[in-house]
């Protein structure tokens, strides 16, 4: 975006400054992928989770790591494998012989930021253990419920091509993720920088936490209070309505998805240093929010991403 409305930040000026710094730090490591970084922060500030689908080696993990480093708080990385069990994620109750009691040993899920690498390698049962925890913000093991820390942000990655021995996330579970995105190959310029500049991994180590859990919660609240004007609401409504009436889709977006769209558009506006929501925010978010919640009719031969692009293409901006 070459132009932005006047950045007259009156509300939460220091929070905004922190966010600014955090963005700058991540952008320093993840070169030329500002859009993806913005999306990631939007998912975080909208209180949702992020799924990154891309080939190995394009920087999924680097992005996730950079995010978790910058956000501060506790973070955990889980590399999924097919022999992993739900307990490996959630934790286990251990019987302690000395006092004849079960002791809960929290799994890696008990952290502010979880980097769930190659989630499709885990068995469906393990996947759904994580997804349920994401949805509910709590974990129940052996009849005991344990709350997860706040904020709680999951960045999952998935390799769409290497399918052998994997279990792609089922359609019905995908909407646990607020946004689904991909990184894409670097541009020629960026690639050159990657070749010339020091190793990304080493750069990661230079990252300092710019935020902490309290500030993230403050930013989430700030985002939730951003102004969304009637025309933007109209736009959102028209988009959602278009998914419901599209002949090539089995069902349209739910009201919950519409609410998520508004929430994420607000967060995106905050990330972009705006004081109010613009149609651009909606337009940027929608292609990452809608497709994985929509199922095209098998016989229509359509891809839900194409359908969503078509809908945006045909929806006038009020």
């Amino acid at each position: 975006m070459s132009s932005r409305p006047d950045p007259a930040h009156t509300v939460g000026a220091d929070l905004r400054a922190d966010l600014e710094r955090a963005l700058a730090s991540v952008n320093a490591v993840i070169v030329d992928k500002a859009e993806v970084v913005e999306l990631a922060f939007s998912a975080l500030l909208a209180g949702g989770h992020l799924l990154i689908e891309d080939l190995p080696g394009v920087g999924k993990t680097t992005l996730a790591q950079a995010l978790s480093l910058v956000l501060g708080g506790s973070w955990q990385r889980v590399q999924f494998t097919n022999d992993m069990l739900p307990a490996d994620i959630l934790g286990v109750s251990i019987f302690r012989r000395q006092d004849e009691q079960f002791e809960f040993r929290p799994g890696p899920v008990f952290a502010n930021v979880i980097l769930a690498d190659e989630i499709n390698r885990a068995s469906p049962r393990t996947q759904s253990a994580l997804l349920e925890a994401m949805a509910e913000g709590q974990v129940t093991v052996d009849g005991q419920t344990h709350s997860l820390p706040q904020p709680f942000f999951v960045i999952a990655t998935q390799n769409p091509l290497d399918l052998a021995g994997t279990y792609p996330l089922p359609d019905s579970q995908l909407d646990r993720f607020l946004l689904r995105t991909s990184i894409g190959y670097p541009s020629a310029l960026e690639e050159r920088r990657l070749l010339v500049e020091p190793d990304r991994r080493r750069m990661l180590q230079t990252l300092q936490p710019e935020l902490d859990e309290h500030r993230v919660i403050g930013l989430i609240e700030l985002a939730a209070g951003l102004h969304v004007a009637e025309p933007v609401l109209d736009y959102i409504q028209t988009l959602v309505q278009a998914t419901r009436s599209h002949a090539g889709l089995r069902a349209g977006l739910s009201p919950r998805a519409a609410l998520a769209l508004i929430r994420t558009a607000r967060a995106h506006a905050l990330v972009r240093r705006q004081d109010f929501c613009l149609p651009e925010n909606v337009k940027q978010i929608f292609p990452h929010l809608a497709p994985h919640r929509l199922q095209p009719l098998p016989e229509s031969g359509l891809d839900s991403r194409a359908v969503v692009a078509e809908i945006i293409e045909h929806t006038p901006v009020p």
């Binding site: 307990a87 286990v92 109750s93 251990i94 049962r125």
Partner: peptide, 15 residues
């Protein structure tokens, strides 16, 4: 590709 571990339900502490 039916997984071997499919019949597991979960792990629990050894009793």
């Amino acid at each position: 590709r039916q997984p071997d571990g499919d019949e597991f339900f979960s792990l629990r502490g050894w009793r």
